[in-house]
Design a protein around this nucleic acid. Structure first.
Length: 376
RNA sequence: GGGGGGAUACCAGAGCGGUCAAAUGGGGCAGACUGUAAAUCUGUUGGCGAAGCCUUCGGAGGUUCGAAUCCUCCUCCCCCCA
């Protein structure tokens, strides 16, 4: 894996770069659609490639391990061949499930015992085991196994958790260094900074993570309910410590405004379920602001979903029609909304990239943040 | 022609003397959603203002301290037998 920074913004920490993997290059800053169970929900792979123009998507270790399972994944020749996405894939480690499925797991030093949300069966996730799973999935970027702490989180717990995540990281590194990829292409490990919203912990964590010299570094444990300003503060602090010449990935973020602010702080990679989940629930992100397509006001609005929108669905369908699809419970509604939102998110990071290259990013960002988040 | 059942809020449908502005669904309206247990979840749905008040349960009368609930008549609908 190789990362080249091709342009920097003078008024902020934003940068534009190119990340090279064995499955192709990624123009940063980038947004990565989430494909938890091997599918970006409600959107065909062909649309993800050709219409959304995604460059890398996510998969999830916990979910793919439970279903379809490693045997099928290996027989398929890895996730790329299984789901038809022949470009880079990043897998989350299950660290987020430690947070989101807190009610059905137990954390120990050795690892985490999950009780399957599917059938209740118990499964041990150790740092070593998670690396093996991510090898079997065939991710180009494998996230280290961590604990994503909740918000709020008491200092003592955040500290203990962070220290364990650091120990787990060493075990992940050791495992990756003593095993080989299964499918003949390189797989990179990205470690994850934790430390909740505590500056001293974040500092220690960022230094620890940086010391491993990995191909890229991630910031986790944010966007879990803390105020946005707190998230920006932590991000800024951590970005100042993580190596400048490696890609930085802010996990689970976020709203269009969150992403632009993150880019301004030096983040190169983002992922979030928001465009797909909120899309399935009728929320559309556009250049002019946010639309709840289920609202009565769109009842007889036959204008395109978004004039000059990034996706063909923006021109093909009207707001009134999309509202009708949602009200009628038609599956096409969530499909159109998901595709629109993803195309918008990819347009957003692409535009940010161009503004960085043009040297106009900072001013553009400040204007865009206000416009993008207003309710229409 | 004879016998029986019914009419409740946008719809369907509980309630059968006071705790009823009226259960529950659906529909409507609105909100939430940030490394996905989510095509999910929440709120609200007679009027007006904060407690509270005002007009409602086919229509008109009546009984009662009090009626969606009991009685009488009327209107309309459904079922069975001829």
């Amino acid at each position: 894996m190789n990362f080249n920074i091709t342009a920097r913004d003078s008024a902020s920490k934003a940068r534009a770069g190119v990340l090279t993997t064995d499955h192709g290059t990624i123009q940063t800053p980038i947004f990565m659609p989430v494909g938890t169970a091997g599918s970006v929900k409600a959107v065909h792979i062909r649309e993800i490639k050709e219409d959304v123009k995604a460059q890398i998507i996510l998969g999830n270790t916990y979910h793919l391990y439970l279903r379809p399972g490693l045997d099928i994944l290996k027989k398929a020749g890895g996730l790329h061949k299984f789901n038809g996405w022949n470009r880079p894939i990043l897998t989350d480690s299950g660290g987020y499930q430690v947070y989101s499925l807190a009610g059905s797991r137990k954390i120990k030093e050795e690892g985490v015992v999950f009780q399957s949300h599917i059938d209740g069966s118990r499964h041990h996730f150790t740092p070593e085991g998670v690396m093996d799973i991510e090898r079997a999935i065939g991710a180009d970027i494998m996230m280290a196994f961590d604990e994503c702490t909740p918000y709020p989180c008491e200092y003592q717990y955040a500290k203990k958790s962070m220290e364990m995540t650091h120990r787990w990281l060493q075990r992940c590194v050791d495992r990756v260094n003593t095993t080989d990829p299964l499918y003949g292409y390189q797989q990179s490990l990205f470690p994850i900074v934790q430390g909740s919203v505590y500056k001293d912990l974040r500092k220690i964590s960022a230094e620890t993570i940086a010391s491993h010299g990995c191909d890229g570094n991630a910031i986790g444990g944010l966007s879990v309910g803390e105020p946005a300003e707190m998230m920006y503060e932590m991000t800024e602090l951590v970005c100042g410590i993580l190596p400048d010449d490696k890609p930085r990935y802010l996990m689970g973020v976020g709203t269009p405004a969150n992403i632009l602010e993150g880019i301004a702080l030096g983040i190169d990679m983002f992922d979030c379920v928001m465009p797909t989940r909120n899309g399935r629930n009728g929320m559309l992100f556009t250049k002019n602001g946010i639309i709840n397509i289920k609202n009565e006001k769109w009842n007889d609005n036959f204008d395109p979903i978004e004039v000059n929108g990034a996706s063909f669905v923006d021109r093909e369908y009207s707001k009134a029609y999309l509202r009708h699809l949602f009200r009628a419970g038609e599956i096409l509604g969530p499909m159109i909304a998901s595709q629109h939102n993803l195309a918008f998110y990819l347009w957003l990071v692409g535009e940010a990239r161009q503004q960085i290259i043009d040297g106009t990013f900072y001013e553009w960002k400040n204007r865009a943040v206000k416009q993008l988040m207003q309710r229409l």
